[in-house]
């Protein structure tokens, strides 16, 4: 099965507030507060550049961050995307 593509929340749907080691995200659609740690905020920001699958997103992240040997990062990014989708913060494209 090919990697699914994901879509970021529409502009203005999320209010993202970094609080030290945590990032608090208020979802205006569900009125829920989510508390996440790195790399979730970075993944959300990178996905904001356009819908894509985990491999493309990993390449985007590698442009800004040292992923420590990019060969095994895609499955991790795919797993995090699945978790963000379960929280309702991203959606399948």
């Amino acid at each position: 099965m090919p990697d699914p593509a994901y879509r970021a929340a529409p502009p203005g749907a999320l209010r993202v507030e970094p609080l030290g080691e945590l990032t608090a995200i208020f979802d205006r659609r569900s009125m829920q507060t989510h508390l996440v740690v790195s790399p979730m905020p970075e993944i959300l920001a990178a996905l904001g550049a356009g819908d894509c699958d985990a491999a493309t997103l990993t390449a985007r992240l590698a442009e800004s961050f040292d992923l420590g040997g990019a060969d095994d990062a895609t499955p991790i990014v795919a797993e995090r995307l699945g978790e963000l989708a379960a929280m309702g913060l991203v959606a399948r494209a």
Binding site: L19, G20, L22, A24, T33, L35
Partner: peptide, 21 residues
Amino acid sequence: GEGEVFVRLTEASTNYVALGE
């Protein structure tokens, strides 16, 4: 840290959820 304080105060607030954003 800010994150821990945030978590503790959401637990200490009786109307945090009701107030929304």
